[in-house]
Computed example of a mutant assay.
Amino acid sequence: LINSYGPTETVITSVVQDCAAYLQGDLPLPAQMPIGRPLAGRHCHVLDANLSLTPPGVPGELYIGGPLLARGYMGRAGLSSERFVADPFDDAGGRLYRTGDLARWNSAGQLEYLGRTDHQVKIRGFRIELGEIEARLLALPDVSAAVVVALAAPGGSQMLAAYVAGAPGAAPDAQELRAVLAAQLPDYMVPSSLTVLDALPLNANGKIDRKALPAPDWDAGQRYEAPQGAAEQALAAIWSEVLDLERISRHDNFFERGGHSLTVMKLAAELRQRHGVSIPLRTVFESPTIAALAAIPALQGLNGSANGDLAAIDALLAELES
């Protein structure tokens, strides 16, 4: 069994991985099968946005070079110059083909395919490779398929939503999967929603159909605890408006619920306008929950006023409903 990879522009197969050692049990079966090493007549580079080599384990765009590259696209000079670029590592004037694929070298010197570079997104000012998160999910034994997308959440912010299908006989728990990701990734890369499906939807080509994924439930699995005291209730009323959410738990993370640098500024402005309290913007980043923020001395004297009363009523109704 051979795992092969290669775009048509590089004369089809460019990289191969012989899977025999994995199938025979000589090597442990990896969660994600590598695509292998370049064949003769090709060489591969994993480069960042500055065309610098990325170290092993770090994702980048896969570039393929060598004498077997196509000359270009017939009658499409502009596209040819965009996809076929000068090889910065070849003094003889060679060329590289930009595959548009996201990959990385592993510790064994094999290439691992992570997805398409057009699936890069920006969340809270950080550029994120969705394939990196998908690879982490696929490495978990209870997961057989995974996809991560960026969607508009309440308030208009872009948030990450993950979808997984369980391995045969497994029953993945969404909150446990998020906890595993939280231990491995920066907080801005942890999906705000994780949905477990029987199977991921596929299109006619057998690829995951992102447009057919169900809408995420951003509140699913969120442990709700009503804001306590006038300060927390006042903060909850402001959070509810700037994040466009009906209900805020005192332990909700401002950024996991859709907050970003602009909404932090709106939050600070509302605090000044309603309560005459000014806080440094970094305070919200350092104390991103209502409980933590309300414990700051400058905010402990907040009076919920009418908004606080409404928040208290909402909290009481929610408690009665549950």
Rank of each mutant, 00 (worst) to 15 (best):
residue 214 P to D: 06
residue 144 S to E: 08
residue 161 A to H: 15
residue 291 A to D: 03
residue 74 M to L: 15
residue 180 V to P: 07
residue 38 P to Y: 07
residue 240 S to E: 02
residue 133 I to E: 11
residue 202 L to H: 01
residue 119 H to G: 14
residue 75 G to E: 01
residue 252 D to T: 03
residue 300 Q to V: 08
residue 171 A to W: 10
residue 322 S to T: 06
residue 120 Q to W: 13
residue 158 Q to E: 07
residue 177 L to C: 06
residue 213 L to A: 00
residue 263 T to Q: 07
residue 193 S to A: 11
residue 28 P to V: 09
residue 126 F to S: 15
residue 118 D to K: 11
residue 265 M to V: 14
residue 62 L to E: 00
residue 94 G to P: 07
residue 243 L to H: 12
residue 53 L to Y: 01
residue 272 R to F: 15
residue 41 G to N: 03
residue 232 E to K: 06
residue 293 L to K: 04
residue 142 D to C: 10
residue 269 A to S: 10
residue 129 E to P: 00
residue 187 D to E: 04
residue 101 D to H: 02
residue 17 Q to P: 13
residue 87 D to H: 01
residue 207 K to T: 08
residue 176 E to P: 06
residue 35 I to C: 15
residue 119 H to M: 14
residue 2 I to V: 10
residue 109 G to M: 01
residue 297 P to W: 05
residue 107 S to G: 09
residue 115 G to I: 08
residue 90 D to T: 10
residue 161 A to Y: 15
residue 262 L to Q: 12
residue 185 L to S: 02
residue 49 A to H: 11
residue 309 D to Y: 13
residue 270 E to H: 14
residue 302 L to V: 11
residue 281 L to I: 10
residue 238 I to R: 01
residue 97 Y to C: 08
residue 90 D to M: 08
residue 237 A to Q: 05
residue 123 I to H: 09
residue 77 A to G: 07
residue 270 E to R: 15
residue 13 T to V: 10
residue 223 R to D: 12
residue 216 P to R: 11
residue 238 I to D: 00
residue 286 E to K: 02
residue 180 V to F: 14
residue 190 V to I: 05
residue 284 V to A: 13
residue 262 L to M: 12
residue 92 A to P: 15
residue 278 S to C: 06
residue 109 G to C: 01
residue 66 G to H: 00
residue 61 E to G: 13
residue 321 E to G: 11
residue 110 Q to P: 15
residue 54 T to G: 02
residue 204 A to C: 03
residue 284 V to R: 04
residue 91 D to M: 11
residue 68 L to C: 05
residue 20 A to E: 09
residue 175 Q to I: 04
residue 103 A to N: 03
residue 124 R to P: 09
residue 295 A to Q: 13
residue 136 R to D: 08
residue 56 P to L: 03
residue 109 G to S: 03
residue 54 T to P: 04
residue 233 Q to L: 06
residue 38 P to S: 14
residue 164 V to C: 03
residue 235 L to Q: 12
residue 210 R to Q: 08
residue 22 Y to D: 01
residue 72 G to T: 03
residue 287 S to L: 14
residue 7 P to T: 10
residue 17 Q to I: 03
residue 110 Q to K: 12
residue 81 S to E: 14
residue 192 S to C: 12
residue 179 A to Q: 14
residue 286 E to N: 06
residue 314 D to H: 11
residue 78 G to H: 01
residue 135 A to H: 04
residue 50 N to K: 07
residue 263 T to R: 05
residue 273 Q to I: 07
residue 3 N to L: 09
residue 228 Q to W: 09
residue 316 L to Y: 11
residue 265 M to W: 14
residue 315 A to E: 05
residue 230 A to Q: 03
residue 112 E to N: 06
residue 47 L to F: 05
residue 284 V to E: 10
residue 65 G to V: 02
residue 77 A to T: 06
residue 292 A to K: 13
residue 24 Q to T: 12
residue 235 L to M: 12
